[in-house]
């Protein structure tokens, strides 16, 4: 059994608890143990604009805690992943920086000696569990479901640091989507930013970027957007949702967004309550209608289960895998 220290970060426990429960549900089925380290703190990402040393220290403290527990880290958030990974490399390459950081950590009885690997959930699923194994756990594959897979910046780039997949034409996430029976559609802006980093800083720009992505995904024929990062998920959902920033032009492209463990969990037959399907602002419960033996045929937003294309889509995506 593989085991990891589960790094939740700040956003998931506060604003996206179902990402955690869905991920735990999926990992449990796939025999990956997610262990909690209560002392984990912020990854350091939001402090990178403000103070480099503070960012490295916060990251290093997490790495040291994982090292003390003898575990590698699995992050659900891509910003956490990218940040921890960056600190990991910095501390590996720069001995004096490591000494400096350790001089602070020692006050809490901690020490870091580059022995921890940082992985994102998607990497664990792809490399550790493997597509074959996941396939064995699929009870009800999707059929005729088109998914726009949104990779997210901080798992892809800088590729020399994160080493996630080919930064120009990645396939890892598409394959993970494909294994569920859904079709991962090609779309132009799939590698671009969701806009979340500028939320609260330059909202207009942030929203423009988000809207462009949504529009592009919709144009590519996607029924749903699939993400694996809390920031991206909240951004896509709230920009389209009521309240949030729905004012300008967002209503033209309702492209509900689903978290990858929710998508996978549905095929595995995990309880929809644990997957938190009801938690979105733009509802996604209609996705159940795409399941091969789906009973509940509710529609989500503008996306209707298309009876005609169902079998074909499922076949095609299976071939891709």
């Amino acid at each position: 059994m593989k085991q990891y220290a589960l790094f939740l970060g700040c956003t998931i426990p506060a604003r996206l608890q179902h990402y955690e429960s869905a991920a735990r549900g999926v990992l449990d089925r796939l025999d990956v143990r997610a262990i909690d380290i209560k002392e984990f703190n912020c990854c350091g990402y939001p402090l990178r604009n403000i103070n480099f040393e503070a960012f490295v220290l916060l990251s290093a403290r997490n790495l040291a805690l994982a090292e003390r527990a003898g575990l590698d880290i699995m992050a659900l958030c891509q910003c956490c992943f990218g940040t921890l990974k960056k600190a990991h490399v910095l501390l590996q390459e720069d001995k004096s920086l490591r000494q400096e950081v350790n001089a602070v950590l020692v006050k809490e009885g901690l020490h870091y000696e580059e022995g921890v690997e940082v992985r994102h959930l998607l990497q664990v699923l792809y490399h550790e569990v493997g597509i074959k194994m996941i396939k064995k756990h699929i009870a009800r594959p999707f059929a005729g479901l088109n998914i726009a897979a949104h990779y997210g910046c901080h798992v892809l780039r800088p590729s020399t640091i994160v080493q996630f997949d080919d930064p120009v034409s990645p396939t890892l996430f598409d394959e993970l989507v494909g294994v569920t029976g859904a079709e991962s559609v090609p779309w132009q802006r799939r590698l671009e930013c969701c806009g979340a980093p500028l939320r609260g800083v330059n909202d207009e720009l942030s929203m423009t970027l988000t809207n462009k992505k949504l529009e592009d995904g919709k144009d590519a024929g996607a029924d749903y957007l699939c993400v694996a990062c809390p920031y991206c998920q909240i951004q896509f959902d709230t920009v389209q949702g009521e309240g949030g920033m729905s004012a300008k032009g967002a209503e033209n492209h309702r492209l509900p967004t689903i978290l990858y463990p929710q998508l996978l969990g549905l095929c595995m037959g995990i309880d929809t309550k644990a997957l938190g399907l009801e938690a979105n602002q733009v509802p996604i419960t209609g996705i159940e209608g795409f399941l091969a033996q789906g009973k509940k045929g509710r529609s989500a937003g503008s996306s209707q289960p298309r009876e005609a294309g169902r079998g074909k889509g499922a076949q095609k995506s299976r071939r891709e895998v």
Binding site: T11, R15, Y45, P46, L47, R48, N49, I50, C79, A196, P197, R199, G200, V201, D203, S206, Y231, I234, T238, G243, G244, M245
Partner: peptide
């Protein structure tokens, strides 16, 4: 200056709680 960092994500989500003027002035 911390306003101009991802720490503001939460404030952005909460922008509905304040008037646009109050929201934009500090930025």
């Amino acid at each position: 200056l911390s306003l101009l960092s991802p720490l503001s994500f939460y404030r952005g989500l909460m922008s509905g709680e304040m008037t646009p003027r109050d929201y934009n002035k500090p930025l």
